[in-house]
Design a protein around this nucleic acid. Structure first.
Length: 752
RNA sequence: GGGCGGGUAGCUCAGUUGGGAGAGCAUCGGCCUUACAAGCCGAGGGUCACAGGUUCAAGCCCUGUUCCGCCUACCA
């Protein structure tokens, strides 16, 4: 929002400087023992031919089967039944595990079973990991193709047999099944087991299956040699930084997600077997097998002195270099001015789906290498979903192309819609109807500006101090409130509140009331002095309004800015209206607000009567207002022209309460009763119905208020100002009701 | 399995120290009023998912139930 990007600083992680940062980080972490290489079970994508970090695996629930396979005892009898969703992996089994407390397997007289098809003996081991309540309580152990089995195998020193190769095809260890694709092999193994009588049964079974986040291929847990970052020590500091508020996550609800992931973090597999990326700066000496990590290619092996060094061919996970972004982009590892000026950065804006991939890792690396957090605030924005609330994805085909929306409704309308939708902590269900609504708003602003500019032929350095009309003083006060509101809601990332405030001000205050109210003045009907005064107000209000709107509607506001007299340069660099820049006349003016409120209520009262009595707007009415209060009468009198114009009256008088005029429709507002003369056109039945409706409404409101006032507990325990407020409300409601009832009686008299 | 968010007007959603239920769109009635018919004026419409509890007072706080969505997890 409102950011002005310096595109000359655009960077790419493969740039020279950033590559140096990557090397530096790798070497340092390696020397600190936080990067290591080893043979572990990792997620492998057989299509991309590369290792994947845990994060890069997407799990999805799929319908599968649970195959129950009997592993006979050495003498060929009975045996132990195991259950698996992946029967092809049995070829790589090196044990069967049971829970040590499981009585079923206490005295079975053997510690081995025969692995069918492979025809070799494998041990029965006891491990607490096994859940005795699941299936038969016996678990087949395939260390090379299952992460849990791998851990069990480590505990029991079991060998690993890799039966599925990196290409997803069966290896020579799979014997007769060699060369088969892993899924073809599943069918073949099942058929063979069935034929030889080892398949007990097949149950349908729904379970979650990991897929490669790039190509959606089913991931194969695979044993291979990879590079890892020991993240635990890094994560601990990143947790503390959020706990003690050095970095704030907004909205706060994401804290839990962040902590949860950080607390359960596992080592990060950073090596990738793809052709692009930062090549790992590590060399293996073919003579002594020692590994050396270095910034520059070593001349010879620092251990044995031979120059038979071979660089690691693997490259680094792209997120490894991305994690350095907040400081690598500003010249690190050099100590630059940029770093000193801008690190830590003020705010990172991002989607929740990137919280782990990127934010968490930037936190860890920033704290470790810069000694400080990379950003003060992390604003997690909403995700735009489709109309049914589903996450957009190319494979689902439910992607809404922003360019299409922009083509149809315009950039400003689209942008404003997104802001208006961006309530904290909630995702956005994209609705074209909403965009259309805000396009109308853009249009409204444009027309309002067009009208304003018709009446502005110069810039006004200052707002006139004399001759201001009530609407002038009112709109200035409203502008002040708006300005404060916009500043506050932007500071607290409540963009939807900002959008709503701007919308309401522009449409329902500036356009609906102010512009209509000052038209006579602008047309010169109140003299040149008044016209000048109002023009100065109009100029400032329009100017400040479009500046406030600019971050939300950059194009229209820029266009208006250039058409406006007395502006310079681009609105992009105009000072944002705040206390410092405001004209001293732009202040809160509660008196003007309450006076204008009174006038608006009177006008609405007349319009209401007109609407409900079906009186054509072209028919001007004679009308009057009665009020007990002298000040009220004075205010109304001073603004009688305004009322006459906006309510469509031909005659208007202000009086003390007295005789009720004949043949009138009535409405009661705070402190005053208004009468619209309907001589000759009044429909008494209609008017009676109208008043009845109003009285009924008041009756129910009064009963609600009365409930409180009759409650001693409320009177005693509620704060004084609340009680006072309720009392005042009660009094004004009763007054209104009494006046309406009086009028109703009069009508009934006339009718009779 | 764990965690998070949600259920408010016909639809999409606001509602931040608990004290007057709101907006946009849609609906109904009336208007070409000299910026705007992409508009103007007016109207109708809600036991705030359900059941309890705290409180003088609950859409908002607590407990439970239910439905929906998302994230996360090593139950074969």
């Amino acid at each position: 929002m409102g950011a002005s990007c310096d595109w000359s600083r655009e960077r790419f992680t493969m740039d020279e400087g950033l590559s140096e940062a990557v090397r530096k980080v790798f070497v340092q972490l390696y020397e600190e023992g936080l990067i290591y290489r080893g043979s572990y079970i990792i997620n492998w994508c057989p299509r991309c031919h590369t290792a994947l970090a845990d994060l890069e695996v997407e799990h999805e629930e799929l319908d599968g089967n649970l195959y129950h396979i009997r592993y006979p005892f050495p003498d060929g009898s009975g045996g132990i039944v195991v259950a698996t969703t992946r029967p092809e992996t049995m070829l790589g089994d090196t044990a069967v595990a049971v829970n040590p407390d499981d009585e079923r397997y206490q005295n079975i007289g053997t510690d081995q079973v025969l692995l069918p098809l492979v025809n070799k003996f494998i041990p029965i081991i006891k491990d607490k990991y096994v859940d005795a309540a699941f299936g038969t309580g016996a678990l087949k152990v395939t260390p090379a193709h299952d992460p849990n089995d791998f851990e069990i195998a480590e505990r029991h020193n079991l060998p690993s047999v890799k039966v599925i190769g990196n290409d997803g095809k069966m290896t020579s260890e799979a014997g007769e099944f060699e060369g088969l694709d892993r899924f073809e092999c599943r069918k073949a193994v099942v058929a063979a087991l069935k034929k030889e009588g080892f398949l007990e049964k097949i149950d349908p079974y729904r379970h979650s299956v990991g897929h490669c986040y790039r190509c959606k291929t089913i991931v194969e847990p695979n044993l291979s040699r990879q590079w890892f970052v020991k993240v635990k020590p890094l994560a601990e500091k990143a947790i503390v930084a959020v706990k003690n508020g050095k970095t704030r996550i907004i909205p706060e609800m994401w804290n839990n997600t962040y902590f949860d992931w950080m607390n359960n973090i596992k080592d990060w597999c950073i090596s990738r077997q793809i052709w692009w990326g930062h090549q790992i700066p590590a060399w293996t000496c073919t003579a002594c097998q020692t590994v050396t990590a270095a910034m520059e290619t070593p001349e010879k092996c620092p251990h044995c002195g031979e120059n038979e060094l071979v660089q690691e061919t693997d490259v680094l996970d792209t997120w490894f270099s991305s994690a350095l972004w907040p400081f690598s982009t500003m010249g690190w590892p050099d100590d630059t001015k940029l770093l000193n000026l801008f690190y830590p950065t003020s705010v990172l804006v991002t989607g929740f789906d990137i919280l782990f991939f990127w934010v968490a890792r930037m936190m860890m690396m920033g704290i470790h290498f810069m000694g400080n957090v990379p950003f003060r605030d992390v604003y997690v924005h909403a995700l735009v979903r489709d109309e049914e609330g589903k996450k957009m994805s190319k494979s689902k085909g439910n992607v809404i192309d922003p360019l299409n929306i922009i083509e149809k409704y315009g950039t400003d309308a689209f942008r404003f819609t997104l802001a208006a939708f961006a309530a904290q902590g909630r995702d956005i269900k994209m609705s074209e109807k909403r965009v259309e609504g805000y396009r109308h708003f853009v249009n409204k602003l444009w027309n309002a500006a067009r009208f304003s500019l018709m009446h502005l032929d110069e810039g006004y350095a200052k707002i006139a101090s004399d001759n201001l009309s009530l609407p002038d003083r009112w709109i200035l006060s409203r502008l002040k409130r708006l300005t404060d509101n916009v500043s506050e809601t932007l500071d607290s990332y409540r963009f939807n509140d900002t959008a709503a405030a701007l919308y309401k001000f522009v449409w329902h205050e500036f356009c609906d009331w102010y512009l209509e109210a000052v038209k006579p003045i602008l047309y010169g009907k109140k003299g040149e002095e008044s016209r000048k005064a109002t023009q100065s107000v109009l100029w400032h209000v329009l100017r400040n309004t479009i500046i406030l709107l600019h971050p939300f509607m950059p194009f229209v506001t820029e266009e208006i800015w250039h058409k406006m007299p007395g502006t310079e340069g681009s609105i992009m660099v105009a000072a944002f209206p705040s206390d410092d820049f405001c004209d001293p006349k732009i202040v809160l003016d509660p008196k003007a607000e309450s006076e204008m409120e009174l006038i608006m209520e009177i006008i609405t009262g007349f319009r209401n009567i007109r609407g409900e009595m079906n009186i054509a707007p072209s028919l001007a009415l004679a009308a009057s207002v009665q009020s007990q209060d002298e000040k009220t009468r004075a205010t109304i009198q001073q603004n009688s022209d305004l009322i006459t114009t906006l309510a469509g009256l031909k005659a208007f008088s202000v009086e003390q309460p007295g005789e009720r005029p004949k043949a009138v429709a009535t409405a009661v507002i705070n402190g005053a009763t208004i009468f619209a003369s309907l001589e000759g056109i009044i429909d008494f039945t209609k008017e009676t119905e109208r008043l009845d409706r109003e009285i009924k409404k008041l009756t129910s409101e009064i009963s609600g208020v009365l409930k409180k006032l009759n409650n001693d507990d409320f009177l005693n325990k509620a704060p004084e100002e609340v009680v006072l407020k309720v009392r005042e409300k009660y009094e004004s409601l009763v007054e209104k009701q009494q006046k309406l009832e009086l009028n109703l009686e009069k009508i009934k008299e006339i009718e009779a």
